Computed example of a mutant assay.
Amino acid sequence: MTSEATKLTGKLLIETAVGNFLGDKRIRLLEAIDEHGSISQAAKAVPFSYKAAWDAVDAMNNLAPEPLVSRAAGGRHGGGTELTPFGRRLIAFYRALEQEYQLALEKLTGNLEQDVAVDTAGFRQILRRMSMKSSARNQFAGPVVALKEGAVDTEVSIRLDADLTLTAIVTRESAEGLGLAEGRDVLAFVKASSIVLVVEEDARISARNRFRGTIADIHEGPVNAEVTINLPGGRHVITAVITDASVGRLGLAVGQPVTAVFKASSVFLVATE
């Protein structure tokens, strides 16, 4: 019989082809959205702050192959919010996988107890160190659709959506090490501080990545502001961190068209299995 002192328990965190995007707290957020039909009520139920809840929804919609949450008319701060059929299927998949995960941990616990030389605490530490996390605010997933090799660097094009392609520049050595090839799924990370916002649609800019969208939210702080932009297609969002002074100088407001610009060299790639 397994003793409580050595019983292993854990929360399932999915870090597969769509990256570190789905865990127990986010699943509970999705379940609460399905129950309440409101992001504010769902955030209180989990609990999340209102902003953290929307950030989590944006991240999941960015990385999932299909949208998990849809917004009804009324904008980011109004209207209803509901799960898509894909979102409901994902919850069911996660809960079923979670049960299998716990059964596996219980079996592992039994095996560990048969060998008194095994350090359970040390084993838990190894498990914690195995997870990868990224501080980059913007995370995207998609297949490589083109590679252009140069003498030193390789230009990598990643399809995020039918009409949305992201470009990254990595060294040839890195491209080879990641095993990059057309059709290979990758994760693309971009820091919010690397993104520049441009109001003029026809501005001449040298940066390769230029995503025109609509401002969905502006969260102002003491010095900097976080600006969230809905991209074409309705699924992806991108977040930039700029100064409060820049928000005022550009006259930024929710609902305003704006272009998010960032260099291909600012994109960090991770190849998935």
Rank of each mutant, 00 (worst) to 15 (best):
T259Y: 00
R26N: 01
V118F: 02
T214D: 07
L160T: 05
T239R: 08
D24V: 10
A175F: 09
A146G: 02
T165S: 00
I91H: 11
F86Q: 15
I14V: 14
F211Y: 09
A175K: 07
T81A: 10
H219I: 14
D119S: 02
V261C: 02
S206K: 11
V156G: 02
A181N: 10
K51M: 14
L180T: 00
A5S: 06
E182C: 08
V57R: 02
V69R: 04
V144W: 01
F86R: 15
S194R: 07
A151Y: 06
T165C: 02
V145E: 04
F21Y: 13
D55R: 08
A146C: 05
F211S: 08
N61V: 12
M1G: 15
L90T: 13
R137K: 07
L90E: 14
F123N: 08
V170W: 04
D119L: 01
V145W: 05
R210K: 13
E15W: 03
A175S: 09
L187I: 07
G80R: 06
G78I: 11
G183S: 05
N224F: 07
A141G: 02
M60L: 10
G75Q: 14
F93L: 14
F268V: 15
F140R: 06
V144E: 04
E173W: 10
A240E: 10
R210A: 09
D115F: 06
R28V: 06
L22P: 01
F140K: 05
L112A: 13
S194A: 11
R95D: 10
G142W: 06
R76V: 10
R204L: 15
S49F: 02
E4A: 15
M60G: 02
S193I: 15
N230Q: 11
N230E: 11
K51Y: 13
K107H: 13
L250A: 08
T154N: 05
P85E: 11
I27C: 08
A117G: 09
A56R: 08
V241T: 04
A240P: 03
V247F: 01
A136L: 08
G80Y: 02
V237Q: 04
A52C: 09
V223K: 12
L187R: 04
A52R: 10
H36C: 07
S38K: 09
D163L: 05
G233L: 01
G248T: 14
K11N: 11
V258R: 03
N111E: 15
Q99S: 13
V267K: 05
F123R: 08
S246K: 08
T259Q: 05
I238G: 00
I33P: 01
V254Y: 08
V199F: 04
V198W: 07
I229T: 00
L68D: 01
S265H: 06
G37W: 01
